[in-house]
Design a protein around this nucleic acid. Sequence first.
DNA 1: TATGAATGAGCCTTCATTCAT
DNA 2: GATGAATGAAGGCTCATTCAT
Lengths: 194, 194, 194, 194
Amino acid sequence: MARVIDETKLVRVHEAAMELIVEKGYAGASIFLIAKKADVSEGYLYRFYKGKEQLVNSLLDNTLKEVSEILDTYFDKHESAITIMEGLLSAICKIAEKKPVQIKFIFVMLSSYNFTASEDIKNNMIETLNKLLIIGQKQNVIDENVSVDHFFTMLIIYPIQFINFRLKQFLRKGTFSRKDKKSLIEFVTETLKK
Amino acid sequence: MARVIDETKLVRVHEAAMELIVEKGYAGASIFLIAKKADVSEGYLYRFYKGKEQLVNSLLDNTLKEVSEILDTYFDKHESAITIMEGLLSAICKIAEKKPVQIKFIFVMLSSYNFTASEDIKNNMIETLNKLLIIGQKQNVIDENVSVDHFFTMLIIYPIQFINFRLKQFLRKGTFSRKDKKSLIEFVTETLKK
Amino acid sequence: MARVIDETKLVRVHEAAMELIVEKGYAGASIFLIAKKADVSEGYLYRFYKGKEQLVNSLLDNTLKEVSEILDTYFDKHESAITIMEGLLSAICKIAEKKPVQIKFIFVMLSSYNFTASEDIKNNMIETLNKLLIIGQKQNVIDENVSVDHFFTMLIIYPIQFINFRLKQFLRKGTFSRKDKKSLIEFVTETLKK
Amino acid sequence: MARVIDETKLVRVHEAAMELIVEKGYAGASIFLIAKKADVSEGYLYRFYKGKEQLVNSLLDNTLKEVSEILDTYFDKHESAITIMEGLLSAICKIAEKKPVQIKFIFVMLSSYNFTASEDIKNNMIETLNKLLIIGQKQNVIDENVSVDHFFTMLIIYPIQFINFRLKQFLRKGTFSRKDKKSLIEFVTETLKK
DNA sequence: TATGAATGAGCCTTCATTCAT
DNA sequence: GATGAATGAAGGCTCATTCAT
């Protein structure tokens, strides 16, 4: 039998790729650098992906899918819109604490005109958010005048941006604390309420 | 007379660079493409910039400076915090209508860990925003609990993101209408108010 | 028993290699493709050959040896030069019908400055052709003025080229029929006669 | 004004490419090696060709066109089929003496299943050869039984093969002398006559 | 023995940058 | 001053080869 596939390796490639893309941008994250950081040969990733672009697209999809699934899970488990929203925000913050690269990666990729989330993930997310908005408005925790666009931007984009400008040290030292988390959740839910 | 011609050329280079970076990303916007689009030779820009990176950094600074100056202008001319904020938001929207490339460019560049606004511009903006926040809270048009971070994210980042996800057609067809403008200004000011 | 299985495998590798080299050239015939076509692992052939180049050299030698041995066989069995030549030409045509890959392979490899027949095979062939030429001239079936060079080119190279330009569809649809065979044998023998 | 194009450079690239392809095959002739041999930068040829394949295709076309044009010239200038054929053969031999690389290059490329002459050149050549065959048969210098296929193979392919097996030193030391030229022309014309 | 996961040298190609004109 | 021909470093990718299993 031939050597067995080392699953750790692929994970290392994923992490190295995300970190380098965040740090140096898509073009700056060369295959050489990614492979070196992941302690893997340059040819390795071509066993799993057709090329660099496919790797990055797959990474973006998986990362967004994670957020999308968190939303779905909360949506399925709970009835209260406020609980769902707080759960989602809390989950996003937890990712920011535990795996800040992921949030940075989403941040970087979402703001590119070259990469977009796959239609499936986008549609699924929009659908759930639509339902959540209606429920929230029925339950009087979201203002009647809030449109889907603002709901989406406020609930998903705003937190990601807020967290990242922290991590990017745009305004102050780059950490995202428990206090920030509380403040963020409150700000978003209050804003949507009215 | 000769000077005038030069100025036009450089402006053409700037516009071409921004358009191409927005469309194809930093790496996709090659010097060849930029020069071609600007109807200028490839070597031309090296008389003014040390290289591509310096050009782009300069572009980002100038674009942000424009926004910063709009803020300063409104801040100097008006006493009412709400008027200043509405003026700023309105100005951002006007840029989005008149020169959408600029807003797209800021959007793309801000969400990159490679490029950052120069310290000067950043500091000046933060200073003014700080003052505005305090005035706004005194005038009871900004909630007491709004921190500088949220104020900045909501007043500057949120509009840019909102506009761009429109233009990027993330949620729906990519236009930014007068109605959107009104809705955006209302949403932001209402949010900050309480 | 185990040996037999091995032999089949190696034969499959040989055939796959020749087919792919003919179809895609030396560089296009990758080890991966050869192994896949032969239903063998990529590492397999390295048990028998030092590398790709050795494999191909060996293949060329074996294929040419086959032709050389046909010539020797006819030469040993028959006295009439015309019978020997016709036998050889007929045998070459038969290969072209039964195993066209072999003829294509010789065609492709002979016209390369990278690969040459091994000295042994070359020398043996030249020796026999020399004898045959002398006999043929004694028997008045080969013109006195025909040199070894022309004899070799006409008897061996010309048929291979003629067949291949047929198969390559250079002039017309790519088949090599019985009529072509007759025409080829006649043309070559007539040419050498006078 | 910018630097002026150095025509010599491109010629050097062409020669280097042909020489290396002859010596090491298409795959062995790397861009690095070609550029080095031509004393040109690696990126140079991409100003004129889209890639390696286009360069080689263009080279093949130009080389074949040269032969094709020689044929046309003789065909237009002379009435006698034997003069035309002798002229063509003589011209091919002259190329072999003056620019042996060209003949070697045609030899190598024609026997590849990956590269073919462009349809235009092929068709033009076949057309002229067809006319020449008919004229030759009318003038009793080409046997009635010679088919187009044999005519083509004998008049074009045979000489190229003969010359190359000389140059390849398959049978003897690799030169192609005046005596060889005479012998070749005689052999081909005699063969076709009867 | 045979496999095929993993490697990394080397390929083709792009493109920021230089500099002769 | 302005051009654009030329460069060559660096990029993405392929594939012959190795070797743990």
